[in-house]
Amino acid sequence: MKSAVANDHEQGWDFEKAAMPYVDSLYNTAYRMTRNSEDAEDLVQETYLKAYKYYDKFEEGTNFKAWLFKIMKNTFINNYRKKKLTPHKIDFSEIEESYERVIQKNAPDLIKDPESEIFQDMMDADVKRALDSLPHDYKMVVLLADIEGFSYKEIAEILDCPVGTVMSRLYRGRKMLERTLLDYARKYGYIRGGAEPAKMRSRKDDLKGRKKKDEGAEEVEVREPDENEEEILFKEEEDFEFEVADEEDEEFAIE
């Protein structure tokens, strides 16, 4: 019979064998979220150490990669809160309007192949900056779906939210990202259109009246809906009856 210590060591090896194949994926997302390699390394390290400590809570047969991402998401949010950084707030209707204007004005340019004809001169830095301009909730969903290839259901497990919320954030996140890229394209003359970039309003402005300029209010302060507001907005989208092909009613296994 093995000693408890030997079992612990075995668990350590098992964990390492199971978890290390995902380190690049986690690091990539951590890097995009924290925007620098030092913080990304700290975040991934903290995630792995926590995951190791709670490895016995992981249910065999469930999605281990999603479980690791979930721990990383929680760690990121906790650290983020500790630093008291306020997430950006978005007024989505203005994003949508501006997107529509750019699409409509530039349709003839845009139906050409953007890779070869419109965006070829666009810098990778512009794409990164566009991604970084997203509030972290939206950025996380876009990264998980479009870069890491998680399904809506897996993202819902990672973020602890309904699939409808994932879809709503994905819709908005992608739209914001595309809108920002189209703004860059227009600004640097890759497309011709004259649509002005959206001026984003702060929620504080809406609630408390406009701030005086000399108070140092950021011009591009954006807002995202609070929880209750999200419910209302999602409800609107749920009216379209998103029927996801792989959606099942079973409970998510990840704790």
Binding site: E16, V23, D24, E41, Q45, Y48, E115, I147
Partner: peptide, 24 residues
């Protein structure tokens, strides 16, 4: 276009070594 431009960033090798050591 976005997917092509946002090529995945791999974790540095020295970090992976450090992480393995920490876990052990």
């Amino acid at each position: 276009f976005i997917r092509r431009r946002l090529t995945p960033v791999a974790a540095p090798e020295r970090f992976k070594v450090r992480l393995s050591r920490s876990l052990r």
